[in-house]
């Protein structure tokens, strides 16, 4: 069985979308919930545990969406910047090495 993966939804507002377009990454967005743009970064079990420990406000929505939610905006901004810089959503190892 493949390892469980838990999405972190980085919701894309106008400002983030502009940055993505400039970097030629606009197609990285998925569309969800009747028109919301989102970039999904996936965490494995160990990464999920580390995130929930490092950011106490974060919550794993076990009941409905099975996603990691409520990360502070500045944390998501940093993840987003790293995605733009690396042109990839595979950023969690590098991101978490600072925590």
């Amino acid at each position: 069985m493949a390892e469980e993966r838990y999405p972190i939804n980085i919701w894309v507002n106008e400002e983030r979308y502009e940055k993505l377009k400039e970097a030629g990454l606009a197609e990285m967005c998925e569309e969800m919930l009747a028109g919301l743009k989102v970039i999904r970064v996936y965490a494995n079990d160990a990464q999920k545990d580390k995130i929930l420990k490092a950011f106490p406000t974060a919550k794993f929505d076990s009941a409905t969406t099975k996603s990691i939610e409520l990360l502070p905006k500045d944390v998501k901004d940093k993840m987003f910047d790293l995605i733009v810089q690396k042109k990839s959503v595979d950023i969690l190892d590098e991101f978490l090495s600072n925590y």
Binding site: N9, T65, E69, L70, K73
Partner: peptide, 16 residues
Amino acid sequence: QKFSGTVIRSIVMDGV
């Protein structure tokens, strides 16, 4: 696509 209060709070927190 399921959504919860938590997801909405996350969206709002992201300034969207």
